[in-house]
Amino acid sequence: MQELNFPSYSFRFKNSENKVSIFDEIRKKFIILTPEEWVRQHVVQFLMHEKNYPKSLINVEKVLHVNGLRKRYDIVLFNPNGTIFALVECKAPHITISQATFDQIAQYNMTLQSQFLMVTNGLKHYYCTMDFENEKYDFLKMLPDYSSTFLNNSK
């Protein structure tokens, strides 16, 4: 698989019926390794190891309903109180991040009401905070770390 713009992580792989699978720590099962899944698994590791989010606050690939349609989000980070902190949209490395990509995640977020968004193709990463009042997003350099966001606020 292609090298991505993330630190190097150790993954578990399995080969079955000429298909390679990667172990997803969140879903606790092997998933067919596609270019998008490669990005998604790097993001999960990045969130746990670089941003220090507990595994228990990360959710991967669940269905949500947007305007009566079934959609699937890639990754959601929860606040300790169960509300959604960040929504992550993963694309395969060969997919260019475009305005349509941001429109897609913004549409999902109208339902989810996440405070932060991350869009990545594994090579380029974009981070935003939502301004719901003005219906826009403001770009950030990085997502906040778990410790700076939650541990300091709980004191």
Rank of each mutant, 00 (worst) to 15 (best):
V66G: 02
N18Q: 12
I22P: 08
T149N: 12
D131I: 01
A106D: 07
D103F: 10
K155A: 11
P144E: 05
F132E: 05
K62I: 02
Q104W: 07
E50W: 09
E89Q: 13
P93S: 04
P54T: 05
H49V: 09
N152T: 11
N152R: 14
C128A: 15
K51D: 06
E89S: 10
A106K: 14
K155P: 05
M48T: 12
L47P: 01
R72P: 00
N134V: 05
N153I: 04
H49P: 00
L57C: 03
T120F: 04
H125K: 15
M118V: 09
N52Y: 13
V60G: 01
C90Y: 04
Q113A: 13
M130P: 07
Y9A: 08
H42R: 10
I95A: 04
F102C: 10
I32R: 15
N109G: 01
P7I: 01
F132Y: 15
N153H: 13
K141T: 10
A100I: 11
V119S: 09
P93C: 07
L33A: 01
Q99P: 00
I31A: 03
K155V: 11
R12H: 10
T149Y: 07
M110Y: 11
L112A: 07
K155N: 14
I22W: 05
M110G: 11
A86N: 10
Q104I: 05
Y108N: 03
E37Q: 12
K124V: 10
I26D: 04
N134R: 14
G68S: 03
L87R: 03
C128I: 05
H49A: 12
Q2H: 11
S114W: 02
Y127W: 14
C128M: 13
Q2P: 01
K29F: 00
F139I: 06
Y137T: 11
G82T: 00
L87M: 07
I58F: 12
N79K: 14
V76S: 10
A106L: 12
A92Q: 09
A92M: 05
L64M: 13
F139C: 10
L4W: 05
I84H: 13
L151C: 11
T120C: 03
N18D: 13
D145A: 04
E135W: 09
S114L: 06
N109S: 02
S56F: 04
Q41S: 08
K51F: 07
H65R: 12
Y126D: 06
L47I: 03
S16K: 15
E50S: 14
P35D: 06
T149I: 06
G68V: 01
I31V: 14
V39E: 03
Y9I: 00
L87T: 05
N79T: 09
I58K: 13
M1V: 07
H94Q: 08
T129C: 15
V39C: 02
G82D: 03
C90D: 04
E50P: 00
I84A: 14
Y127T: 02
Y146V: 06
L140T: 02
V88W: 11
